[in-house]
Every structure is written in structure tokens, then in C-alpha cells.
Write a protein that binds this DNA or RNA. Structure first.
Lengths: 357, 357
DNA sequence: ATTAGCACTCAGGAGGAATGAGTGCTAAAA
DNA sequence: TTTTAGCACTCATTCCTCCTGAGTGCTAAT
């Protein structure tokens, strides 16, 4: 977008003012911007030009101007200055990164909550997975004569377990046998490759132990499935109501429902290429997001997985602040995982300071 | 509450009408109730009496009456007929009980989502635990020369694991030693009983392995902590907006914030004694719930834990329907767990039909 | 190219009347 | 003594209309 310096200044002034006040901006207050020594009449002419270019809009004839989605686009691409995080902000962000490390799922969920609190917008978080996971190894641990623990580990180093009680007793030797059989037959297979026939063949080899095998294998399949199935976590939906554009329920309700709808991923944008992406209003694919903006960042989880974290808000969003915070936080998460903090499963120890180089 | 038959009929008619319409009920429509062959003037006199008894309220002089919290109380205690679930409803509820069995936490979360969908009210779900959990057993599984899996099992049969990578190599024998040491020293202890001193003593016994021991033990402590810490899951917050009492943001926003606030339990009521409890308006302890009603049910998880699941809505709630659905669902959950469906950790196989006797 | 000035537009708020649902009370009927 | 018909009264709600003021576009002067 080729604009004169003055037009840029005016556009920027209007957008930043509107971001603060949520009120249409008139020529008079723009004229008052320092460094812009022209009269309001001149501003009016310029504003008319900017409107013709599709960068501004007028809610009604006798109102000031508000930025159009295209205007915001120009702003984030060319006009926006990097927002410098204050010391307090980095401190808060760093503190927030001391996440309690548990299951990956819980970490993602928690990260979403935290970023929602920090930005005051609803947030979503998900992991976009490695889709071809296989079981690398089975372990069966005897607990008592009629119960044992299944531990499975995938090739992405996720470890999951389940305790099983049986109606009948089982000897240590039988368990050993089962263990070997599982490890020779069912390792290295993806979800689709584990067929009922395969299970029948295996149980034949093991004699009567079909029930046991199906028990363990179906648990393994559950694990694989849960790793492939991408679920979204959303947090802070209520914070929408703090923003004037959602003071009317007609605007708030559909968006809130969309955000809290069933947790299937794919409804939310994921950054392509760049680690951070801004989607303004109609640039969103989902209808419910057509007049909201989404800022989304990704971070590296390791083992071929990427975490995605983003916030949703009105197109009038403080893009500078939000992108600064989000990218800092995402970078922190990347480092956290990279440091061996906690990879896909639940591995590694708790790092002291996740942001220390 | 001792009321004449006629007063009861009138009160009930008013409450049920108000539950349907959310509009103050006038004497005329009450007079039209079948089985009540008196004129509206008589009804007016009776209504004045009921108001004097504190069972009805008048929003303003020229409006009909609405039930007071006390009125609802009388209604749920004495007047309400059991709502008979239709065949479709039991079918839907049964289907909903086919929860994917994973971690207990996830099951609880999912149950909350489901009940929120079924009732169209926001729901909360939590597990009220057994507070003195101890580690019953440690297992260390070698993965490669520099990594192993910690598996811990608590006395409540919860099993958790974590994969650990080490900077240096480790022999199978060392791991065995560590295993024995952990099992002799740290089993049967509650969270507070695991002291730093104890860890120092143990590592002395093991030679130089302090780092390793603290690694495993702090994981165990994490597990104990996560089991004692009761987190609430809330779902369906946006469904509030569908009800006319929350069409105004002043009413909706505080409640929504309360529901989505940080996930600490204790903010939500838990049934005492009875497996189901109804708290109407000011009967709630929490300020934010003072003009909402909460219907809450509990179910048995096993191993000394109880699940709690409830819905939150306006005092004008269809108590008959909600209690019927909630208690049916809670009973289903109880049976699900009892059947060995999935106890605290992640045990047992997936049942075919959780409601089959 | 810029600016002062002026007529014009229009959302939003204030005030006021009309509407109608619903009440309480009284006096008559059962 | 209880019930009912009738009537005057109340008051939230809706729908006008009018007014105000912020902000514009245009024109003519600088």
C-alpha cells in the first residue's frame, strides 16, 4: 500500500486512537496529534481519501471514522511499531511460564489459561501433531495375582499407563509371555495397521489369551488415537464481555458459543510458515470469526509436534501489545520444551528458570 | 410449610408457569388452571396470602407474581412431581454415558460437558478426594542406557508415569538398586511425611545418587499433590446466555466470570449426606451464586473418592427435569465406575453398556 | 495546497403521552 | 363466612417527538 507520509501518520493516529477508545475518531482529535501540524479541514480531506482507498469506514454520516479490516491490515504490516515489553510485563510473563509440568495436554490447557489472563482476551491452545504415531514398547507390571499395570511408550516418547484388574488369577510367567508377544507383534504399527485379524493371529499364538491381548491392545489403540486426535482448549471466554464490542448479546453470544463448542480442532487457525500470524476480520475462514481478529503463535514441542496458542478478540485489538506478549510467551514455551522441560509424554525434570539461556 | 390444598395448587401453578415463561404470572392465567374452579378475584386474595407468607414476590405493583426463593423451596420439597424421563431422554443419557475412558480427570471433565449439553445450563464437575494418599509402589523401567520410566502407584490405585532422560548413563543394576531403595523408604508416606531430610538420608544410603532420588521422589510428590488438589472443571458457560435472565450483561458477566475463574474447587457446593442437593438463590454460600440455583449430585468413584457434578442456572429452573436428568446421569456414572469401568487411575476395560445391570 | 467558515446530517438522549396488564378493595351474592 | 363481580388505580413499557452536539462535506479565501 503506497501512501504519503502524512496519510500514514493520519491512518496510524486514527487506528491507535480507536484501539484505545473504541469510539469513531473525528478530524479534530486527529489534528491534535503531535507532529501533524495541519488543520482539521485538511485531515478531513485526507480521511476522505483513506476512506476511498478502503482503509477507513464511517458508521454513519455524522460520525468520525473507524478503521476497516483493510486499514488494520496496513497498520499491522507497515505502520505498527514494535511494542516494547516493560520490565513488569516480562516478569509477569516469566512467572507465568513456571507451569506445573504434568501431561502435555494439561500444560497446553494451562498455557491457554495463562495467556488469556495476560491478554484479557479469550485464548485457545492446541497441539498440532505428528500424525503417524506407533507404539514402541509395552511393559506389563504385576501388581497382585489378579491385577497388573500396562505401560506403553510411543515412538514419540509419550508414555501412558493403565491399571487392570482381572476376574481370574494370572501368573508372572503368563504375564512375561504376553509381554513378549505384544512387543514382537504390535510395536511399530500405526493405528490403522492394528487390525482385528492381527489380534486374532496373535491370540492364536498365545493360546487362549485373546481377551487379555485385546485388552492391552485396545488400550494401546486408545493411546494412539488420543495422540492423533487434536483437541482444542479454550479459556477466558468470559473476558470477552469486558470489551465494549461485546456489550450486546447478539454479538457476544454467537462467538462465545463458537469458542465453547465441542472441542474439535480445525475450527481455529494455525500459523502457516511464520511462527506468528494475525488474521483480521473477514480474513478468517470460520464464519463466527468473520468480525473478530485472531492472533496466533506456534512453538516447538519436540518430537515433530508444534504447539499452537492464540487469542481471539474484536478487530479493534491492541495488535502491538498482543503480538509482543504472545510471541514472547510462545518463545518461552519453545525454550521450556527444548530444555527437556517436558516433551510429549511426561518426561524430564522441572526446570528452574525456563527463560534462562 | 402448612398450606391449604388450594394454596398449594395455586403456588404450584404459578411456579410451573413462571418456569416456562419467565414472566410474572397474573391472577387470570392462574384462574384458568384446570382443577381450580375459582375466579381470579379469589386467586388474588390467595396470592396476597402467599406473598405475606414470603412464597411469592411482586416485581412492581401492577405486575403478576413471581416465586421467591422460599417459594421454590416449598415447591421442590413438597409440590414438585417426579419428572418421568421419556424414552428418548433415557436413550440420550445412556448414549452420553459412553464416555471415552482415559485419565480420571478427563472423564470428569467430559461428564461435565455432557451434562451441560443435556441440561442447557453451565455445569461443573469435580472429584472430592480422599485426602491422605500415599505412594504404594515404585517401578523403574529401563528404556535405554540414558533414560528410564518412573511408574508410581498410590494406595488408591492411581498409576502415573514419567519418562526421564539423564545426562549420563545408568546401568540396569543401578536402577534395580534405586528401585529397591525407593520402595523401602518412600512407600506408605503422605505428602507431608516426605521431608528433605528423609531424602538426604536415603541418598546417603545410595551413595552419590541424590539427584536421581530427588528426581523420582519429586515426581511422586507431584502426583500426590495433584491428587489432593481438587480442581473444578466447568463447561457450557455460554449456554447461560440462552436464558432470559441473563440477557443483561450486568447479570451475566459476574456469574460467567465466577464460573470461569481459576479452577479451584471449594467455590462450588458439594452435596452433604444426600446424593443430590438443590440450593436455591440465597441458600448458596458464594456471593456470585446468591441469585442462581445450583443442583448438584454426587456419584461413587471408588477408592474413597466421590465425584460431584452439578449445574448452575437461574432460580427459575426446571427443577423437576434437571434433578431427574442429573440423578439418572450420576447413577449411571456410579455404575460405570463400580463396574470396574475406570477407577481412579486408568484402570479396567471399556464396558459395553454402562447402564446394563 | 491549505484553511476558515458554514450548512447539513444523524445518533442518542430527554420528555411525555398512550397502552394495557394486573392489582387491591368494596359491596353484593352464595 | 366465602366467593365473586366491578371499578379505580398503579406502573412498566412502548412509541412518539424534539433537541443537542459532534462531525462531516463543500466553498471560497488565503
Amino acid at each position: 500500500m503506497d501512501l504519503t507520509e502524512r496519510k500514514k501518520k493520519i491512518l496510524r493516529a486514527i487506528i491507535e486512537n480507536y484501539i484505545q477508545t473504541a469510539e469513531p475518531v473525528g478530524s479534530k482529535v486527529v489534528a491534535a496529534t503531535p507532529g501533524l501540524n495541519v488543520s482539521s479541514a485538511t485531515i478531513r480531506n485526507e480521511m476522505a481519501d483513506l476512506e476511498a482507498l478502503g482503509l477507513l469506514e464511517q458508521p454513519h454520516t455524522s460520525a468520525g471514522r473507524i478503521p476497516s479490516p483493510g486499514g488494520y491490515r496496513v497498520y499491522v504490516n507497515e505502520l505498527m511499531e514494535d511494542y516494547r515489553l516493560s520490565v513488569q510485563e516480562t516478569q509477569r510473563l516469566n512467572e507465568a511460564l513456571h507451569l506445573k509440568m504434568r501431561e502435555l495436554d494439561q500444560v497446553i490447557d494451562q498455557a491457554g489459561r495463562v495467556i488469556s489472563q495476560l491478554t484479557r482476551y479469550p485464548a485457545f491452545a492446541l497441539a498440532s501433531g505428528s500424525s503417524r504415531v506407533t507404539i514402541q514398547r509395552f511393559d506389563l507390571l504385576m501388581v497382585s495375582s489378579d491385577s497388573f499395570i500396562i505401560v506403553v511408550m510411543t515412538d514419540t516418547n509419550v508414555v501412558r499407563n493403565r491399571l487392570v484388574r482381572l476376574p481370574s488369577d494370572l501368573s508372572e510367567a503368563q504375564l512375561q509371555l504376553l509381554d513378549t508377544l505384544l512387543n514382537t507383534t504390535f510395536t511399530g504399527l500405526t493405528l490403522d495397521e492394528i487390525t482385528p485379524e492381527l489380534m486374532r493371529v496373535a491370540s492364536h499364538a498365545a493360546g487362549e489369551a485373546y481377551g487379555l491381548i485385546s485388552l492391552v491392545v485396545s488400550f494401546a489403540m486408545d493411546v494412539l488415537e488420543s495422540l492423533e486426535q487434536r483437541t482444542v482448549h479454550t479459556a477466558g471466554i468470559a473476558s470477552l464481555l469486558a470489551h465494549p464490542e461485546y456489550r450486546s448479546l447478539d454479538r457476544a453470544a454467537p462467538l462465545m458459543s463458537y469458542l465453547s463448542e465441542d472441542q474439535d480442532a480445525g475450527r481455529f487457525p494455525v500459523p502457516q510458515g511464520d511462527p506468528m500470524e494475525i488474521l483480521i476480520g473477514p480474513e478468517n475462514v470460520a464464519d463466527a470469526l468473520k468480525d473478530t481478529s485472531v492472533v496466533v503463535a506456534s512453538y516447538d514441542i519436540g518430537d515433530g509436534m508444534r504447539g499452537v496458542i492464540g487469542v481471539v478478540g474484536p478487530t479493534r485489538m491492541d495488535y502491538a501489545k498482543i503480538t509482543a506478549r504472545l510471541s514472547y510467551f510462545a518463545a518461552g514455551l519453545s525454550r521450556l520444551f527444548e530444555q527437556g522441560g517436558l516433551p510429549p509424554g511426561d518426561e524430564g525434570e522441572e526446570p528452574d528458570d525456563p527463560l534462562r539461556r
